[in-house]
């Protein structure tokens, strides 16, 4: 046993396991209260109170919801492709969980599961795998509304992934690394311009060539998470409930979990790329607090947008993605590259 504890590989694996366990546990709690927060905020935006019966202020509502979902009937429609129907909800959750392994929640190596040097690529890869859960869920239920919802959402995710990937390039040009903690590191210190120090943090968003990518990334992340104003896949008025029309009980809950986990992941990536990650005033140990504060602020923004903006039409969505966001992000890559090259050589 002692020899095993000395083994370096074993130690790394053990610590990774502990961190994964903590992240999984905390994340499930955060997701259930995020849903509660969404219902509460939505209620107040619409001038009602939201859930307030179960427990004080309705704080026990998530537990009641989970209990309800657990006891619902598992239903498999006739003519469905059984195996794929069961696998699809899992496929909707796992990419989000995998991405968490590279997100630095505080200074490494303590607050990140694994700090690999292609972290951003892993995020892009996993977000491109996220399409499968939704497409297959829609296809395998043998229901035309579900199929339409699934196809819509995968077309939308593929289209917006391009602009999203391109809008990260100026960030990479600035930091010179694909590692997420390296990117956060490059945003530390004081903001300097031409030798003078300004009273601003050195975050990505405060550099002029990263402002447009920030907004492009933000818009794309609404589309990636299938949330309003881009929630076409589940447009109730046209498609019943979209790709998860036929799902019930825990399988439906997994889709829901996947959606909210994706939201947390993508907000974490925005914090990492543009908002300075764990950087903030105070000692380094406060890093995780700063990270969480920024994360929750962004999550609130996501919920706020969902309940204030109407849904786009499908052709508007596609046209906006391909004709506005994509050219804008390409132009920004060129501008940022020229500017950084000029500054480095001037």
């Amino acid at each position: 046993m002692a020899a095993l504890m000395q083994n370096e590989v074993f130690q790394v694996a053990l610590w990774a396991m502990v961190k994964v366990g903590i992240i999984l546990g905390v994340m499930l709690g955060v997701v259930s209260y995020l849903i509660y927060a969404e219902r509460k905020i939505c209620g107040h935006i619409q001038a009602r109170t939201g859930p307030n019966r179960v427990g004080p202020l309705g704080l026990l509502q998530p537990i009641a919801d989970v209990g309800k979902l657990l006891f619902k009937e598992e239903f498999t429609p006739a003519g469905a492709n059984k195996i794929i129907f069961h696998i699809a909800p899992i496929l909707a959750v796992f990419p989000a969980i995998v991405t968490f392994s590279v997100i630095p929640m505080g200074p490494p190596p303590m607050f990140v599961v694994t700090d690999i040097n292609v972290g951003l690529l892993l995020f892009l890869a996993m977000s491109s795998l996220g399409v499968y859960g939704i497409t297959l869920g829609g296809w395998s239920s043998n229901n035309k509304y579900a199929l339409l919802g699934g196809l819509r959402s995968s077309a939308q995710m593929i289209s917006y992934e391009l602009a999203m990937g391109l809008s990260t390039i100026p960030v990479l040009l600035r930091s010179g690394t694909l590692s997420l903690s390296g990117i956060v590191d490059s945003q530390g210190g004081a903001y300097q311009i031409g030798g003078t120090t300004l009273p601003l943090p050195n975050w990505g968003i405060f550099h002029w060539y990263l402002v447009l990518p920030f907004f492009i990334f933000l818009i794309c992340s609404f589309a990636e998470t299938n949330r309003a104003p881009f929630d076409l896949p589940e447009a109730e008025g046209e498609l019943v409930a979209g790709f998860h029309t036929e799902y019930s009980s825990m399988k439906w809950a997994l889709f829901f979990l996947g959606e909210y986990m994706n939201m947390i992941v993508i907000c974490s990536i925005i914090v990492t790329l543009f908002l300075g990650g764990w950087h903030g005033p105070g000692p380094a140990i406060l890093g995780i607090v700063w990270y969480l504060l920024k994360l929750f602020a962004l999550l609130f923004f996501f919920i706020w947008v969902r309940w204030t903006y109407p849904r786009l039409r499908y052709d508007q969505l596609m046209g906006f993605g391909w004709k506005v966001l994509l050219p804008a992000s390409i132009a920004n890559v060129v501008i940022a590259a020229v500017w950084l090259y000029w500054r480095a050589n001037a």
Binding site: V118, L121, A125, L129, Y132, T135, L136, L151, S154, E161
Partner: peptide, 25 residues
Amino acid sequence: AEFIGMVQIIVYAGAIMVLFLFVIM
């Protein structure tokens, strides 16, 4: 070959195979 490995997932699993699935559906 970390870079190639990640690009493999992005390009093959994320783009090419989605195209295949689209056409089959």
